[in-house]
Design a protein around this nucleic acid. Structure first.
Lengths: 125, 125
DNA sequence: AGTTGACTTCGAGTAAACTCTAACGAATAT
DNA sequence: ATATTCGTTAGAGTTTACTCGAAGTCAACT
């Protein structure tokens, strides 16, 4: 059992953000007698998953869609699978782009270093 | 020599976006006698680079910073190098996250498929 | 009893990156 | 000559994902 700020600390997000995720129906924690939010381990696990999806550019709207399907029960299994497979493809595209750009940057960086080294030879301090 | 819409088509962005990039001082094309924008090959090359940076999550503000340094001349070489190296590190972190998430998704997808296959065995149509 | 601290809600505000609108001008097509 | 097409500007509007502020509640400490 965790309070909102405990969860926030554990995940490195702000309590504000967690309330926002609740408003967006992405994580809906329980409440105690005072009306305060109570997060359980399953919420924590789900939030870690959500954060991974977010870090890989899945928009909040799609994460909510997945959460909704999950709450709808077993008959949405294939829909959820499709959603995950779509995101997997998106990730693979991102990997492609990132690797290509990394290579390009590495080349550019090498060229800059060459240039700087050449300048230091010509005008020693 | 290209018009704004030719460049837009070549890059898959809208003319609006190109004007926005100009307002942000990221690409400042020439003008013809009528005051219309004229892009040359060097603008195209630079824009392709900008788009790669954007696709790998470099914020517009940093891209503009790099462009400014470039226009300031040779004495900003080390600053530009530092900027590129910083982004290279950011890319490497993204690669890490993406690969980890891809693995996680692949596992989850496999589990879903197993589950679906099991259901089809139990309740054949 | 009073203050502190953590929580609550609702609604407003912010930042980034576009995206669009309106009003206009110039060149081409009929 | 007029209509269409493509361009121009300044500025307003949109979307996404927070982020903050104000006003209030509640339990615990002093």
């Amino acid at each position: 059992m965790y309070t909102i700020s405990e969860i926030a600390d554990l995940l490195g997000v702000s309590p504000h953000t967690l309330r926002y995720y609740e408003k967006e129906k992405i994580v809906v924690p329980d409440r105690d007698a005072n009306g305060n939010r109570v997060y359980r381990n399953e919420h924590l696990t789900w939030l870690r998953f959500v954060i991974k999806l977010k870090q890989t550019q899945m928009p909040i709207a799609k994460i909510r869609k997945y959460a909704e399907l999950y709450l709808e029960g077993e008959h949405t299994t294939t829909a959820r699978l499709a959603l995950l497979e779509e995101h997997q493809r998106a990730i693979q595209e991102q990997l492609h782009t990132l690797m290509a750009t990394e290579k390009m940057l590495a080349d550019k960086i090498a060229a800059y270093k060459q240039y700087i080294a050449r300048m230091q030879n010509k005008q020693p301090t």
